[in-house]
Amino acid sequence: MADEDRMRADSRAGGGSSEVPVSHRRPGVTAGQPRIALRRLADSYRRRRWAVTGLAVFACVVGLGAYLGTRNGPEPGDDLAGRSGVPVGASRPTGFPGVEGRTGDAGPATPGLRPRQRPPSPDPTPSVSAPAVPPAPSVPPALSVTRTEAPGEIDLTVVGHRDWMHWGLRGTSVVRKRGGSGEIVDAGGRGARVGWDGNQELVSWRDGTPERSVRGSSNGVYTCGAGNGFSLAIAGSGEPRTVQLYAGTWMARGRLDVRLSTGGPASTVRLEDPYTSKSAQFTIRFQLPKGARLLVSWTVDKVFTPHCGNVGLQAVAVR
């Protein structure tokens, strides 16, 4: 500093040049430049350096992305392509692991097929189906008919807990079991029906309709002349059934024909008295599938008098 002051003093005193020696000047900075200008210049250099660095980083990221985008499948010779069985350049749908080409499968997948599809085998393995279950054996129709003497008193509520019918309570009217199964059908028959109240058998019930309760009725109906009579039908249910038929004759021979609507067994039973009346209880046992019917016909087979030889009908019951 002392040397510099002396030089400045000598310059002023000698009136010489004011130029400072080159060795004491700072490059690019004049003696009167303020310090703030130096700070701004340094900040400008720093910002340019950051900008250049950011551009370089961005260029690297763009180049890396472009490179990764070109690798959308395994390269030829890649071990993964050889193991998965997928052609080079083909992408596998998401969610299906590369198991098509493993040992034990039907072979590598054919290009263009969806995952897990296979071309048909030239010799397909025959499918093994479960043996057919044989149908349950059907019950063969069954039928039997017996005749016994009619009891003096008949309780239809007891003997016909499934269904029953009574004829002749008032004229030729019919009374049925209230809430019965409806299995009995009056199918009519040839000849005019006539009411009668002189039967020896007395019939009672406690569950009838339209007559709810009756005790000791001797009523019934009859029809005269050979070939005339009554026809009934009883529906099958698949279960064994027993039918009780209460009927009689007066100076005639009656014929009871029983058969099945499905064909098969049939039976005929006769009852006669040439001189007076005769009654009987016919017991019919049968078994038929649903939809089939037991067919019953009670007719005059022969008359022994010109005065209305006939067959009569009181009641029928099913249990």
Rank of each mutant, 00 (worst) to 15 (best):
S138T: 14
E19I: 06
K302V: 04
L202Y: 05
D197E: 01
G254L: 09
V159R: 06
S144N: 09
R114H: 08
S127T: 11
L232Q: 10
L64N: 07
G216N: 15
S144Y: 09
R206L: 04
M1A: 13
P34R: 10
P126N: 09
G107V: 10
G16H: 13
W205H: 02
P126E: 14
G101S: 13
V203K: 00
E100P: 03
W196K: 06
A9G: 07
L41K: 08
G65R: 08
P76I: 13
A187V: 11
A247N: 05
G89D: 09
R176V: 10
G180L: 02
V174I: 14
M165D: 01
G104T: 08
L288I: 00
E272N: 05
T268N: 03
G182H: 02
G264Y: 02
T262D: 02
G160T: 02
G188M: 05
K302P: 01
W167T: 10
R26E: 12
R83I: 15
G54A: 15
V57H: 11
A2D: 15
D10M: 08
T125H: 13
G236H: 10
A150F: 04
V133Q: 08
A136Y: 07
Y246D: 06
R48A: 12
T94W: 08
D78E: 15
R285S: 13
L156Q: 02
P120W: 09
A56N: 07
G312T: 06
H307E: 14
V133A: 09
G179M: 09
P97L: 15
Y45M: 05
S217N: 06
A66F: 08
R170K: 07
E183Y: 02
S204D: 01
R35A: 15
G82M: 11
R6L: 15
S204C: 00
R92D: 06
V296T: 05
V311T: 11
D5N: 14
L169R: 05
T157P: 00
Y246G: 00
L113C: 09
P87S: 04
V311P: 03
A136P: 12
A106L: 14
S279G: 08
V316W: 04
R114A: 15
T242R: 14
F286N: 02
P34F: 10
L156V: 01
V303K: 11
P151F: 03
P34H: 12
R71K: 12
L113I: 07
A66Y: 06
R147S: 09
P131S: 05
C308N: 12
R162Y: 10
P34D: 14
V258A: 01
G171T: 01
P137E: 13
I284A: 03
